[in-house]
Every structure is written in structure tokens, then in C-alpha cells.
Write a protein that binds this DNA or RNA. Structure first.
Lengths: 299, 299
DNA sequence: TTCAAGTCTTTTATCGATTAAAGACATGAA
DNA sequence: TTCATGTCTTTAATCGATAAAAGACTTGAA
């Protein structure tokens, strides 16, 4: 087996969704643009959909012959890239504590366990190692340093430094900078979330991540943005893993965000910094609580 | 061809050096310990050296039959790991500006150019990408963001934040912490360097890197230490590339280090912070000068 | 006990091959 | 012009195989 055609499958599903939502596309090129893939891939999708008699050309547009049912779609796990599925499997294994006590693990063993090749695992681990919770020395096996308390502290320290600095830089941005309208939209979204949190509380992690990313990106330092990737990953999996007090926690955090946003919009630096500190320490508390739950939380 | 035996060759050379410097080893295990490799590798070295009639057992120790000459050693480029040689070739290519104007490049092309496999290049690039000067999106080719002025600024900003924070943390370390004797030794080494800088100015980059690493490691945050890897790499290659004013520059920097060290030893926090700021901005100026020289220095 | 050696097993480093997807080029219609 | 298409070439994602090095087990000597 060589390279998988998961992208094609994902596009196939996305195209069904597109058509099902009442939209359409004019040409192969048009679909390729919409899906942000090459024309070859788009063409393959269209041909397959025609072959399966799911769509048909209709004047200048393509249309569904009838609404697609669940079995017209590729299965959810068929559209993950190898890397995505390794990530999910690995993080689940970490959080569930299914690693040896000595925290050493081998590429080969993981590859076998996850049903992928050696190289795929290796490359995943290399990419992952920038988050500093796994590491290896040449010629030796990997070590899981795990989500220890210390890890949470290190993460928090750097995160605080970066985000506090970000606030200081943001306050100085000129009034016509594109950051301000984006922050406004963020404000609106948060208000909406707070209003509807009882039903939509699941949306918070994504909102949270977008909010912090906005701050970091606007601070215009690539290392800040890159660090935000680590934060997003860690919190993503911890949120998934630890659902306790989820609703309340999310509401509190959203309100903390609002305080920061409002202080920023009024350009009250001290108030914004203060609000951010409060928020960061509650985020730290959340992470700590989750770390303590996870079985691979050794010292 | 599969895995190369460069480690063995390096050990072979190192063992010759060891014996040539008058030291010896008692057993396979002993040699393995000294070289920090497995016994299998150490055994292979000893057997080869015996076969080549370069050493012979002598009671409880091994001895050289006669002082080894240059041709008894493996060539310098035979003892680099694939990864090290890719790194050297890649960085040289970046600094010499031998990339296309659009800054895109392909794994395959590099692999061909460097005479190594696709995967080796790929893994190198993945590892490198945490330094944030190359990057890629899935399904697309790599982009060299290069050592722009902006890169130098981003690097400087984070570096300053980390090291200033490090100083604040170091001042608080108890008197019996192992950091203090290490700092004392560092002090002595710097005094010695300043005294002999006219002949030994080449030693400075290594000393510089060890000094900053000491600060970052003692601050006890893995992200600080990891960032220091980036700094070391960047400065290493820029120093190599830009030799102008080398002697004077190194002397000035060493004296700046001394001011920091002395202030730390006296636990004068403000003075240490001040001295560090001075040093960091001269380091930034050095890097900037070098960046301007390098041909891949686009905006 | 501790250390050393030999043997066997596991794991990493490295390669080359294969297929999906992107990208480049040429051509033709609005 | 501009866009859409088809064809061809290059490149990335992914795999499995192989040899070097590490590590585990066993035995024997000081």
C-alpha cells in the first residue's frame, strides 16, 4: 500500500454536503476552488459521483439526483489522514495512561498497535516532539515525559509570558488595524455563546482556541503563534478527556474572555492584563485538575 | 543500503584518540562506558583495531602498537550521521542563498542534491521546522521563510523574554544549589578566554552557547531550554558564515558575559538584568549584520 | 555481589518503491 | 483576454525491507 486516497474521500463527502445544503458548482475548476484542492482530485470526485448516479449535470450546474443518505458517504474513519488517526490514537493512549511505567516506548510497537507503518509513526513523533512532552536521544528509544504537573507549570509560565506581552503589543495597534474589527466579531460571538451556553457549551473549546489564537497572531511573532499550537492541542485532548463541570467551566471562561475583550476595546491596558491573568490561572487550574485525573500523570 | 555504520566509525576514531592521549581501557564494557555506546559497538571497534594491528592487549589494558597516523582514521565526512550532513548542507545552502526566489523547495530535489533518501530529508525538515524558518502545509511543498530581518526580531523578542525571566528565577535559587558552582566555573572560563582571546577566539561560539544554556537550564522550564537549541543552531551557522570583526566581537561579548556573571554572583538582580539587556542587543546586532549579508535575506 | 563476556532479540536509522495529489503546459471556447 | 478542460510531469504521503546499534538474558570469574 502506498499513499492513501483519504483526501479524495473527504472531498467526496464534502461535495455531497455542499450539494445537500442547496449549493452547487459550475465546473471542475469551480469545485476544485471551493474545496481548495487540485482539479485532478475534484475531477475524480465528480466522476465518481456521476458513476454512482448520485449527481447529474444540469445546464451549467451539477445537481443531486436525490438527497444522499448516510451510506452514500465514506465512513468517518476513512477520511482521516494517517497522521490525524495516529494523533488521536496516541493522545488517547497517553491520557488513558496506557504506557509502561518507565515511560519508554518504541516506534515499531506503536506502528503495530496503530496499524500504520514505522515511518508514519516516526514522523508523527518527530512533529510532536516540539511540544516537549515526548523526547528521544539518538539511537535510543522514545520517552514519554507525560502531562506531569511540572509540564503544566512550564506550559503555563510560557503561555503567560507570551499572552501578557501580546496584550501590551495589541494596545499599541493603530485604530485602523484589522485586528480591531476581528476583536469586535469575537466579542459578538462570545456574547452569543454566553446567552446560549446551556445548549451550545460544546462549542467553547473551538471558540477558546480561536480567541487565544487571535491574540497571539496579532502580536505578530511566529513563536507566539507556534506555541499556541501546543496549547490548542493539549487543551483539546484534555477537554475531551475530562468532561467534569464542563458547562460551568466553559461559562466562567467565556465571561473571563469577555472581560479581556472589553478592556482591550476600551484600550485599558492594566485592566486587560489583570483580566488575562485571572483567565490564565483558571485555565491552569483546569489543566491541573485534568492532569491529576490522567493515569500517565507521574511526577 | 540500510542504516549506516557511522557510529562505529566515529567510535573507532575516538578510541584512537583516547589511546593516543595516553589513556587506556580495561575491557569491552569499560570502553563501551567511556564512549557511551553499547558493548556490541565497542566490541566491533576493538576487534577491528586488533585486526588492523593497531592495538594489542597488554595485561589488563589495551595499548597502541605505535602512534596512529592520519590514515588510520576514518575520514571526517564518514563519521557524520546522515542527519548531521543534511543539516550542514542545508544550512550552507540557506546562508549562501542558493534557493529559488519563490522560496519553495521539494524534498525529492534536496534528497537528490544531498545524495540521501527522501525520508531522511523529510525527517530532517520536520525536525527543523520547530525553529520556524521553514514550513509546509499538508500536500504542498516546503517554503523557506529564511533568515529575514523579521525572523531575527521574533527570535530576539522571545529570547529576551526567556533569558530575563531566567535571571529573575536564578537570583532566587538557594545558595547551595548546584547552579552556583557551575556559574563559578563559567566565570573562570570566561576570565581565561578574555586573557587568551587573541589565539583562542574560535572557542567563543561554544562558550557562548554553554553560557546561555546554563542560564536557560537553571531556569528549569523545558521550553526555555528548547528555545536555546534554536538560538544555538542559528548563531552557530551565522558565526561560521560571517567572520567579519570576529575577534573583537567575541571579546566584547565575553566581557558582556562577565558583567552578567559577576552581577549574578553578587545577587544584584537589576545589574544582571541590565547587563543581559546590553548583551542581548549586541547579539541581535551581530545577527542582523549577518542576516543582511546572507543572500536569502528577503523581506 | 559485582563486573565482564557472549549470544540472542528488539529497535532504530536509512533506504527505495508505489500511488495520490499537486502543478505545469497546451489548447480551445466564451 | 479569461476561464475551463485534458494531458503530462513532478512531488508528497505512505509503505515495507534491511543493516546497525541497543538492550536483555545467561553464564562465569574475581
Amino acid at each position: 500500500m502506498a499513499r492513501s486516497d483519504r483526501l479524495y474521500k473527504r472531498c467526496y463527502n464534502d461535495t455531497l454536503d455542499l450539494l445537500n445544503s442547496g449549493q452547487s458548482f459550475r465546473s471542475v475548476s469551480d469545485l476544485a476552488n471551493r474545496l481548495d484542492v487540485s482539479r485532478n482530485t475534484a475531477r475524480r470526485v465528480i466522476e465518481a459521483l456521476q458513476d454512482h448516479e448520485i449527481i447529474r449535470p444540469d445546464g451549467t450546474n451539477w445537481h443531486l439526483i436525490q438527497s444522499p443518505s448516510a451510506q452514500d458517504y465514506f465512513a468517518a474513519d476513512a477520511i482521516l489522514t494517517t497522521d490525524e488517526s495516529i494523533e488521536a490514537a496516541f493522545m488517547e493512549k497517553v491520557l488513558a495512561g496506557r504506557f509502561d511505567k518507565n515511560h519508554r516506548f518504541s516506534e515499531t510497537a506503536l506502528a503495530k498497535e496503530f496499524g500504520v507503518s514505522n515511518s508514519a509513526v516516526r514522523e508523527f513523533l518527530l512533529r510532536m516532539s516540539r511540544f516537549e512532552f515526548i523526547k528521544k536521544e539518538p539511537q535510543k528509544s522514545w520517552i514519554l515525559e507525560g502531562f506531569s504537573k511540572k509540564y503544566a507549570e512550564d506550559l503555563h509560565e510560557v503561555r503567560s509570558m507570551f499572552e501578557l506581552r501580546a496584550i501590551e503589543k495589541l494596545i499599541l495597534l493603530p485604530d485602523d488595524h484589522r485586528f480591531w474589527p476581528m476583536l469586535h466579531r469575537m466579542h459578538t460571538e462570545h456574547l452569543k455563546f454566553v446567552e446560549q451556553y446551556k445548549t451550545n457549551f460544546n462549542d467553547f473549546p473551538a471558540l477558546d482556541s480561536r480567541f487565544h489564537r487571535l491574540l497571539n497572531d496579532a502580536a505578530d511573532n511566529r513563536f507566539f503563534s507556534s506555541f499556541q499550537d501546543a496549547i490548542t492541542l493539549i487543551f483539546h485532548y484534555h477537554f475531551r478527556w475530562n468532561k467534569s463541570d464542563e458547562k460551568e467551566r466553559n461559562l466562567v471562561a467565556a465571561k473571563e474572555h469577555l472581560r479581556i475583550i472589553e478592556a482591550l476595546l476600551l484600550k485599558r491596558e492594566d485592566e486587560a492584563l489583570e483580566a488575562l491573568k485571572v483567565h490564565l490561572s483558571s485555565a491552569k487550574a483546569t489543566l491541573n485538575a485534568s492532569v491529576n485525573r490522567s493515569a500517565n500523570t507521574f511526577e
